[in-house]
Amino acid sequence: MDILGLSETILRLVIGTIAVALFGIIFGLLYKGVDRKISAHMQGRIGPPIRQPFRDVRKLFTKENVVPENAIPWIFNLVPLLGLIATISILIYLPIGGFPPIMSWGGDLILILYLLMFPSLAMVIGGFSSGSPYAIVGAQREMATMIAYEFPLAIIIISLAWKLTQVGSVNVFALSTIIGTPIWNSVTGPLGFIGFAILLLALIIVTPAELSKIPFDAPEAETEIAGGLLVEYSGRNLAMFYLTDGVKTVVMASIIVVLFFPYNLSSLPMLGLEGGSYVAYIIDILFYLLKIFLVILFSVTLIRVAIARLKIDQIVYTYWVPLTLLSLVGLIFIMWDGWIMNLLGLV
């Protein structure tokens, strides 16, 4: 009986993981294509076809994997795989559409915060191990960027959790709790609303750096240091980094969606759908994909077309000073929310 239950759990876990991995890879590449197409249109170009990323990956997998002479081969070849695995494992903890997360325990949100560092860390170590000066410069920049954007990110996550605790939720770091009690419902007054809007803005600005996109792509910077971190990578390893990037885009967008827009269409009363029916799941997934698309459009595509690349010191400054202050202001607004309303006698 127990063994049966256990084997069922394991089976669910394995199938779920594979499904999530496929989902992440396919839609990651798809959104990459869409992103390229839209940005091309905005710049007055035609741009590659939407399935171009799939072609790129297929071709890269057939190419020879070159290990430079100065590199340390076993680390050089290991880290792309680790990065991909870590990124996919984040998807396991995320609720996708109407589906609950495959795995969940106490501190999902902090776990995700840390797991998000893994792909960057893998790239950093990969860059260091490749032995090329360009890659080392890129790796140092990546490290600096990573430390820079973690500050606002940590503030955002802790603020959300703190607010949820104030409303009386337990297990506040579990994503299932967070989608169960959307944060917009927990605000008591305009101050809290503004606070959360500020945090959302901060998170949207953190996203391009997390994904190494313009204007925060100093670590890669093709025109300056010839691809930086990835300069020595080719073939299978480069393909894996490429996939990681795609999946990470989906992951970051999903996190924004889960934290700030966890609403589902199927629960609308006017649709008259039963929870758990196939139609409901399909509608939720489609709505979810739409939400992700919008998030990517705003936080990645628009920003990267509109702004030029920042220098590394400008990136660090942006995150350490204005954005940190901004998110601290958000935190203070959220903390004062209920208190001010009480003071004014509005509650």
Binding site: G106, I110, I155, I158, T165, V172, F173, L331, M335
Partner: peptide, 12 residues
């Protein structure tokens, strides 16, 4: 994790 998820309730 245990430290984070408890201390933020004392002060974020």
């Amino acid at each position: 994790l245990l430290i984070y998820e408890s201390t933020f309730q004392l002060n974020p």
